[in-house]
């Protein structure tokens, strides 16, 4: 009993419970058919949300007002950059991935430059940056539907015993992120800044550098995500990242990270991403229309934040 209570006290457990319930509801509807395949598909898709979700989580943990709205544009541009550099050539996969990472990091660094130099709230800095990135992407990747190299496309779809390899790698990455958050100077500093930026400065935290690193990290993860998405969906396009604006914020909030900052939760990002993907699968299985799907997604986010509410505002 006591151990159960400890588990239930963990904020991220609820997102996994939600995901499990949604999955059970779906296989109950299908009569148990396709339950395993559903998990495989959910894992494959959740990976992309988790990667940007972790970046967004670090940004949001920096405290009120911090959020990266440039992720969709970033993903779009990086996917184009990766595909162009790879140019359908298996030998160029590593170079293409590095190019996408570099592109994302540059965007993240530029975001922080705007925040720091113009002293504007991150939400507007990343928003105006996303306008510009979007245009660069449109003009750079226009009309080019470059296919990923076959090796890369296969890699992003590779499964072992029904478990996507990408998901395994992402689990490893999130374990690393969780360790960085709790056990490294960087993570501790992010948490300190999010709780009280002034106290963090007075306790010797290098606030400027940590904020810079965090926005750069978020940008880099957006870039990586763009490349992987282009591989998985077999081609880059401008709108490929659009759904990840809300999704990245939603998984952070649903996963038990505090929007007031200073409290982050890595496992919850996984649970929330699976929950969202499975929810969409369920609604599709039920034959619900796109409109209802959107409404329900929105209401769930508002509902979760209301239930978790009572904290300081994000701006």
């Amino acid at each position: 009993m006591a151990s159960l209570r400890i588990w239930l006290a963990k904020p991220w457990i609820w997102s996994f419970i939600g995901a499990a319930l949604v999955w059970l509801a779906t296989i109950a509807f299908t009569g148990g058919y396709g339950g395993g395949g559903m998990i495989t598909a959910a894992l494959s898709l959740a990976v992309f949300t988790v990667i940007v979700g972790v970046g967004q989580m670090f940004v949001i943990t920096l405290g009120p007002g911090n959020v990266d709205l440039s992720l969709p544009a970033n993903i779009g541009l990086a996917s184009a950059v990766a595909m162009k550099v790879m140019d359908g050539n298996d030998a160029m996969i590593a170079v293409g991935l590095l190019a996408a990472l570099a592109c994302g990091m540059a965007i993240g660094a530029a975001n922080y430059l705007l925040i720091w130099a113009l002293r504007i709230p991150p939400i507007i800095a990343t928003l105006s940056a996303s306008f510009i990135i979007q245009s660069i992407d449109i003009s750079y990747g226009r009309g080019l539907q470059i296919k990923p190299p076959p090796g890369f496309a296969d890699f992003t779809n590779w499964q072992i015993l029904g478990i996507p390899v990408l998901a395994i790698l992402t689990v490893l990455f999130t374990i690393g992120a969780a360790i960085a958050l709790q056990r490294m100077i960087y993570g501790r500093s992010v948490l300190a800044i999010g709780q009280n930026i002034r106290a963090a400065w007075l306790a010797g935290v290098n606030v400027g550098r940590i904020r810079f690193l965090t926005y750069t990290l978020s940008g880099a993860l957006g870039g990586l995500d763009g490349a992987l998405l282009a591989g998985y969906f077999r081609g880059a396009n401008v709108d490929i990242g659009n759904e990840y604006l809300l999704a990245s914020i939603a998984v952070v909030v649903i996963g038990g990270t505090s929007v007031a900052g200073g409290k982050a939760n890595v496992p919850g990002v996984w649970g929330a991403a699976l929950f969202l993907v499975l929810l969409l699968t369920m609604l599709n299985t039920f034959g619900v229309s796109a409109g209802v799907r959107l409404v329900l997604t929105g209401l769930i986010i508002v509902g979760v934040i209301t239930a978790a509410g009572g904290e300081k505002a994000l701006r």
């Binding site: 959020v67 604006l245 796109a290 986010i301 508002v302 300081k312 994000l314 701006r315």
Partner: peptide, 21 residues
């Protein structure tokens, strides 16, 4: 005491869904 940007971001999906409906 909710963060307005999360609430309105969620609502943006609700309005979009209703528009499609």
């Amino acid at each position: 005491n909710l963060p307005s940007i999360v609430v309105t971001l969620g609502m943006s999906f609700v309005w979009q869904g209703l528009a499609i409906l």
